[in-house]
Computed example of a mutant assay.
Amino acid sequence: MKAKILLCEDDTSLGFIIADQLKSLGYDVHLASDGKEGFKAFNEDHFHLCIFDVMMPKKDGFMLARDVRKVNADVPILFLTAKSMTEDKIEGFKAGGDDYLTKPFSHEELQFRVKALLKRVNVDVEEEEEHLVKLGSYTYDKDNYMLTHPEFEKKLTKKEAQILAMLCKFKNQVLPREIVLNAVWGQDDYFVGRSLDVFITKLRKYLSQDQKVSIENVHGIGFKLEITHE
């Protein structure tokens, strides 16, 4: 399996050039053109490394890194920036970044930084992500969007599957509401918020066969998928 890289760069030409350079090194690259698109992509797939341009529309690289760190504390983040000021680098590290690359940079420097970051976190690209999740007496197949129970089976829609996958990742922890909205819809306004409530209600119904499994509201914050053990 190739190492997968999420590249977020709003300069289309530069984005394609960097993506091609990374692909020539044997990496699998997903290119996003802004921070909101990047965060959605991050939550829809599994990436070994993130490369974020700092200055992007809708959600800049620092904001994107902070959102990513709320759901994944370990994935390496490399910032790309036209600025070399110390204050910007400090802000990048505070946002959760691991390294900084100042534009313009050479193909060799990009190659070195990427290899160093993947090595630093000891990424095993052969390791398979867990696709079957046990939720009490349920089994959730994340690949096929299938939720099964001895007396129940349900094929989830894409959005139902995305929301349940995030709840599973935060099992028995609080999942902030805005993180779900930005990850699934790319925005967190009132209307998509109402849609999220509808999907949560549906998921509660699907999980109602097991009293030890529940999705709880955490007032003013978000949701918690609670699995109680006897």
Score class of each variant (00 low, 15 high):
residue 2 K to G: 06
residue 5 I to P: 03
residue 6 L to D: 03
residue 8 C to P: 04
residue 9 E to V: 06
residue 11 D to P: 00
residue 13 S to P: 09
residue 17 I to Q: 15
residue 17 I to Y: 03
residue 25 L to R: 15
residue 36 K to S: 13
residue 39 F to Y: 12
residue 41 A to T: 06
residue 41 A to W: 00
residue 41 A to P: 02
residue 43 N to W: 03
residue 43 N to D: 10
residue 44 E to D: 10
residue 45 D to W: 02
residue 47 F to E: 01
residue 49 L to Q: 04
residue 51 I to V: 12
residue 51 I to F: 09
residue 57 P to D: 08
residue 60 D to E: 13
residue 61 G to I: 05
residue 61 G to T: 11
residue 64 L to R: 04
residue 65 A to K: 02
residue 65 A to M: 01
residue 70 K to T: 14
residue 71 V to G: 12
residue 73 A to N: 15
residue 76 P to T: 04
residue 78 L to Y: 09
residue 80 L to D: 01
residue 80 L to R: 03
residue 86 T to D: 10
residue 87 E to A: 12
residue 87 E to Q: 13
residue 88 D to H: 10
residue 88 D to G: 06
residue 89 K to A: 12
residue 89 K to H: 10
residue 94 K to N: 13
residue 95 A to R: 00
residue 96 G to T: 10
residue 96 G to W: 05
residue 100 Y to M: 12
residue 101 L to M: 08
residue 101 L to P: 09
residue 102 T to I: 07
residue 103 K to P: 05
residue 103 K to E: 15
residue 103 K to S: 14
residue 104 P to R: 07
residue 105 F to V: 03
residue 108 E to F: 09
residue 108 E to H: 15
residue 110 L to Q: 08
residue 110 L to R: 02
residue 113 R to A: 07
residue 114 V to I: 11
residue 119 K to L: 09
residue 126 E to R: 09
residue 127 E to T: 14
residue 129 E to A: 06
residue 130 E to G: 00
residue 130 E to R: 07
residue 132 L to Q: 14
residue 132 L to T: 05
residue 133 V to S: 00
residue 138 Y to I: 14
residue 139 T to N: 10
residue 140 Y to M: 00
residue 140 Y to H: 03
residue 141 D to A: 11
residue 141 D to C: 06
residue 141 D to W: 00
residue 143 D to N: 14
residue 145 Y to L: 13
residue 148 T to S: 15
residue 152 F to P: 08
residue 154 K to C: 10
residue 158 K to C: 11
residue 163 I to L: 11
residue 163 I to K: 00
residue 168 C to I: 08
residue 168 C to Y: 01
residue 171 K to P: 01
residue 171 K to F: 00
residue 171 K to D: 02
residue 172 N to I: 08
residue 174 V to Q: 12
residue 175 L to M: 07
residue 178 E to Q: 08
residue 179 I to N: 12
residue 182 N to C: 04
residue 187 Q to T: 14
residue 188 D to T: 04
residue 194 R to C: 11
residue 194 R to L: 13
residue 194 R to D: 11
residue 198 V to N: 10
residue 200 I to C: 07
residue 201 T to P: 01
residue 202 K to V: 03
residue 203 L to R: 02
residue 203 L to N: 01
residue 209 Q to W: 08
residue 209 Q to C: 14
residue 214 S to N: 11
residue 214 S to T: 11
residue 215 I to Q: 02
residue 218 V to P: 00
residue 222 G to V: 03
residue 222 G to H: 08
